[in-house]
Simulated assay, not measured.
Amino acid sequence: MTPNELAARHPRLFHVTEPGAWPSIERHGLLSTNAALVHFDAPRDIIAKVSAHPRPATITLDHPENGTLILNDQLPLNEKALTACLDGGLSPQDWLRILNDRVFFWPDEANLERLLGARINRGRTRDVLVFDTLSLAQAAHDRMELSPINSGATIRKPARRGPETFTPISALSYRNWQRKRGRRDTVREVTVLHALSNPGAHLLEIRSHHSATT
């Protein structure tokens, strides 16, 4: 799939973060969880905690030179439910490693709005970074992968997931993606492995979203 093919169907990519995070992101890049742990010299106990279990709350990383970074929680990810829906002999810790190696983008604004309005997000304010898909995909094409599911959620009836969940964008044309996944457009997530440097080159706007408490 070329950047143009992806951008023709999903012209914008959306990344959800904590309010006020952009100055740090602009300075250090959009970092995966594992990249952030390294870049901010996280203590060993934090690294062990992040590797072992889904995050029930945000985690703040402080560094004397790099400043502060907040790792998003993983509230939609229940460890027991995750264990029951993994394929390929993967353990929950294997899946956490897969997730923590990636930066995630929503390619569909309707799905994004459902996430932001979900019960677990009620009363929260989030910043949504809106990126130009074509520009971002051209810069990160060799490290970009697609998922047909919300890979970080196990709410209600969780989709099966395993080694084949993430597909490198360069491996299939859009037509072959549809043949593999079904006739409907099922791209639920766009991911970039490890980190996205110079995110400001692709940023279109920053939106503040506050979810009502009821």
Rank of each mutant, 00 (worst) to 15 (best):
E145M: 11
E79Y: 03
R97N: 12
E79K: 08
P92D: 03
E65F: 09
F104H: 15
T68I: 11
L136W: 00
H141D: 14
P64Y: 09
D94C: 01
R102W: 00
N66C: 10
D108W: 08
E65C: 07
L134I: 06
I149D: 03
E65V: 13
G89I: 03
A159D: 13
N72T: 09
I120V: 11
P76S: 05
L61F: 11
D127C: 08
A137L: 02
T83S: 12
D73H: 14
V128I: 15
L115T: 14
R97M: 08
T83Q: 11
D132R: 07
P76I: 05
P54L: 07
I155P: 01
S151Y: 04
L129P: 02
S91K: 12
H53G: 01
A81V: 02
D132G: 15
G88P: 02
P92Y: 10
T60Q: 13
A48W: 01
R102E: 08
P56H: 09
K157Y: 10
R126W: 03
L146I: 11
S91V: 04
F104P: 00
T133Y: 03
D132E: 14
Q93S: 14
L112I: 08
E65P: 00
L134M: 09
V128M: 10
W95A: 04
L86Q: 02
L136C: 02
S51Y: 01
D142I: 01
D108Q: 13
P92H: 07
Q138N: 15
C85L: 04
I70G: 02
I120P: 01
A118H: 15
Q138V: 13
Q93F: 02
R114C: 11
R114H: 14
L129W: 03
H53W: 07
A140C: 15
H63G: 04
E113G: 10
S91R: 13
L136Q: 00
S135A: 15
Q93M: 12
L112C: 10
T133M: 01
A48S: 14
D108F: 06
A52H: 10
G88D: 06
R102Q: 15
A118D: 14
N72C: 08
P54K: 06
M144N: 00
L129N: 06
L77W: 05
R119M: 09
L146E: 03
Q74T: 05
P56R: 07
R55G: 05
T125D: 06
F104R: 11
